[in-house]
Amino acid sequence: MKTAIIALNDYNQVKGGTEVFTKHLHTVFPESTIITAPQNIGQIFAKAGFQNEYRSWKAGKRFLEIDDQFDAIFRNAYAGWNIKTRSPMINIFHFTYSGFSREAMQGTKGRFQAKYISPFFEKLCLNKGVNIAVSAKVQRELKRYYKTESKVIENAVPDIFHNIPKEKAREELNIDYSGPLGIFVGRTDRTKGFDIVSKISKSIKIICVTPNRLQSTDNIIIRTNVEYEDMPKYYSAADFLIFPSRYESSGYSVMEAIKCGIPVVASKTGILEDIDAEDVGAIVEIGNEEGYMKGIENVIKTNFVPSSEIARRFSMERFKKEYMELVKEIA
Results as ranks from 00 to 15, higher is better:
Lys84Gly: 01
Lys61Ser: 03
Ala46Cys: 10
Met105Leu: 15
Ala59Ile: 09
Phe50Met: 06
Gly49Asn: 02
Asp67Ala: 07
Gly110Cys: 08
Arg102Asp: 02
Leu142Asn: 01
Lys128Gln: 08
Pro119Gly: 07
Gln51Ser: 12
Arg140Ile: 15
Ser118Met: 12
Ala114Asn: 00
Ile90Phe: 03
Arg75Met: 15
Phe70Leu: 04
Gln69Leu: 10
Ala114Arg: 00
Ser87Asn: 02
Ala114Tyr: 01
Ala77Tyr: 10
Arg55Ile: 07
Tyr97Arg: 00
Gly99Thr: 08
Lys58Asn: 01
Gly99Trp: 04
Arg55Gly: 00
Asn82Gln: 04
Thr96Lys: 09
Phe120Lys: 01
Pro119Cys: 11
Tyr78Asn: 04
Arg62Tyr: 08
Arg75Asn: 11
Phe112Pro: 00
Val134Cys: 12
Ala46Ser: 13
Gly80Gln: 11
Leu142Gln: 01
Phe74Gly: 02
Lys123His: 10
Phe45Arg: 10
Ala133Leu: 09
Gly110Met: 12
Phe45Thr: 14
Thr108Tyr: 08
Ile83Leu: 03
Phe100Ala: 04
Lys47Val: 15
Pro119Arg: 13
Asn131Gly: 06
Phe93Tyr: 11
Lys137Trp: 09
Phe121Trp: 14
Gln69His: 06
Ile66Thr: 09
Phe121Tyr: 13
Glu122Gln: 06
Lys61Tyr: 10
Gly110Ile: 13
Pro88Asn: 02
Lys58Ser: 00
Tyr97Cys: 05
Ser101Pro: 02
Gln106Leu: 13
Gly110His: 09
Asn82Gly: 04
Arg62Cys: 04
Leu126Gly: 02
Lys84Leu: 07
Ser135Leu: 15
Gly49Leu: 14
Ala133Val: 11
Lys109Leu: 05
Ile92Met: 14
Ala79Val: 02
Asp67Leu: 06
Thr108Gly: 07
Phe95Thr: 04
Phe95Cys: 05
Ala79Pro: 01
Leu64Gln: 07
Tyr145His: 07
Met89Cys: 05
Phe74Trp: 07
His94Trp: 05
Glu65Phe: 13
Ala72Leu: 08
Ile132Asp: 01
Thr108Met: 09
Lys128Trp: 08
Ala46Gln: 15
Leu126Thr: 06
Ala46Lys: 15
Met105Gly: 01
Phe63Tyr: 15
Lys123Val: 10
Glu103Cys: 06
Ile132Cys: 11
Ile66Val: 05
Ile44Arg: 01
Ser101Ile: 11
Arg144Thr: 15
Arg111Asn: 07
Pro88Glu: 02
Ser87Gln: 02
Tyr54Trp: 06
Thr108Val: 13
Ser101Gly: 03
Gly110Pro: 06
Ser135Pro: 07
Phe50Val: 06
Tyr116His: 14
Lys58Cys: 03
Pro119Tyr: 13
Val130Glu: 14
Ala48His: 14
Trp81Glu: 13
Lys128His: 09
Ser98Gly: 00
Ile92Asn: 12
Ala133Gly: 06
Ser56Phe: 08
Ala59Gln: 11
Tyr116Ala: 08
Cys125Glu: 13
Arg102Cys: 12
Trp81Lys: 02
Phe74Met: 10
Lys61Met: 07
Ala104Thr: 10
Gly60Tyr: 09
Phe63Val: 06
Asn127Glu: 12
Ser101Cys: 08
Glu141Gln: 13
Tyr78Trp: 14
Gln113Leu: 15
Ile66Cys: 10
Lys128Ala: 05
Ser87Cys: 04
